[in-house]
Design a protein around this nucleic acid. Sequence first.
RNA 1: GGGGUCGUGGGGUAGCUUGGUCUAUCCUGCCAGCUUUGGGAGCUGGUGACCUGGGUUCAAAUCCCGGCGACCCCA
Length: 479
Amino acid sequence: MRKMVGRSRWQNNFSEWFNEIVQVAEIMETRYPVKGLYVWLPYGLKLRNHVISALKELLERTGHREVLFPLLIPENLFKKEAEHIRGFEGQVYWVTHGGHDRLDIRLALRPTSETAMYPMFSLWIQSHADLPLKIYQVVNVFRYETKMTKPLIRLREVTTFKEAHTAHATAEDAERQIREAIQIYKQFFDRLCIPYIITKRPSWDTFAGAVYSIAFDTLAPDGRTLQIGTVHNLGQNFSRVYDVQYERVDGSYEHVYQTCYGISERAIAALIMVHGDDIGMCLPPEFAPIQVVIVPIPYKDVQAPIEQTCTEIYERLKQAGLRVELDLRDLRPGNKYYYWERRGVPLRIELGPTDHANQRVTAVRRDTGERIHVPLDRVAERVPQLLREIETSMRRRAWEEFRKRIKTIASVDELQNAIHNRNVGRVPWCGNEKCGLEIEERVEGSVLGEELFTEAPKNRSCVVCFQQANKWLVVARTY
RNA sequence: GGGGUCGUGGGGUAGCUUGGUCUAUCCUGCCAGCUUUGGGAGCUGGUGACCUGGGUUCAAAUCCCGGCGACCCCA
């Protein structure tokens, strides 16, 4: 049996690895001549579409309806909510001209869509019967990043922003919606086999205009966390400004309570990085553009029958609903192995003279390198089974690796040490903003927030002020 | 926000310090042919590059300035 592929470059030269794989696996063309903009290639776009479908399915199943808003937002609407604009104004692209004419009102390329949508909400929502309103869209958004850009991770055009927006009659219902959103995102990332930690962002890192923000973070091989999803409770901050009111049963009026939540193509970045190794990607079968590749090994005297059998297998798997590719190119088998392995195809089926003589194929798992002989007449049942096994073990392995790198720690010094060693630190915290900010001063990481869905620390003292701690604060280097 | 390094065929590079036989090196890729096929085969032939704009100079891949782009470090 072949040993699992190494991960030294993946881990120690992650940035280089990532940039190379994104290109070599034909996810994106990174040479587009504008900073922070990239081209989706056919293979990458298929991957992207599968990811989008999975989330759409989860959103539709929970009563969200898809819409599509314009890209341009007039300045006066965009600037209505003071906090919101304060958070975004430094990174907005403005359209100032139409042809030769200077526009009277500048138009923003949406950095996010609250200010485009909520004026419409005020037209759409009249009575309590219109609530809750739950919509989403998958669009591009623009943010003028001044920092170094990186494909799929830090972009000036986020091309795959899956944003949901909801409106509710009561604060309680908005809270319920937050919990639903978290459940949806959990299921989504579970399907992607991406591990995550959920935190409530600290007050100084809340989404501009939100009451509070909750975020999902995963971990890159280089020890930085990657924010892959956010859920915001907007309270009535926006509905007051955009005058989104509804009429109650008793005839009185109230502003709606809102939430919004979004996921970008960072989910795809996570998919690539979390499951990668030194050769390249390894994609969970649900999302792999090609789930199975068949590689014939055509020795001269048996070439025709082997290719014939491969074609039959190909047809059979295709009929079983799998995304399968038959590689008949005139290349050596080894060359083809590397080719498909880099692209993350989860399962390879080889058929050579020995297999042929024994009426079997050799299946090779991308995640473990394990070789499995499958009788020809059982291929159609065994392959889907193997794909399920691959998914399960990919998910388990990813979570195991993730958990190992979340370190529970009792002092600031140890925290700095853990972060330095490419881990995520989890420290007892009193809940005071001052202590949180001091931690950011004293270690080379940032506060992700207070960990949610976990037991509060017992008999522990805050690592800064040594008062009774009631929360776990998660700290890491971040993207 | 501050500092630094760099830009040569599709990818990776040599050449730059000391300007001139650079008609630009090597590896890889790609195309054609032969030969091969159980982990990146071999041989032959072919294809293809000095980021951009200005400046210095008899002469610029090489020196200077701007732009665009890439990467790294610090806050």
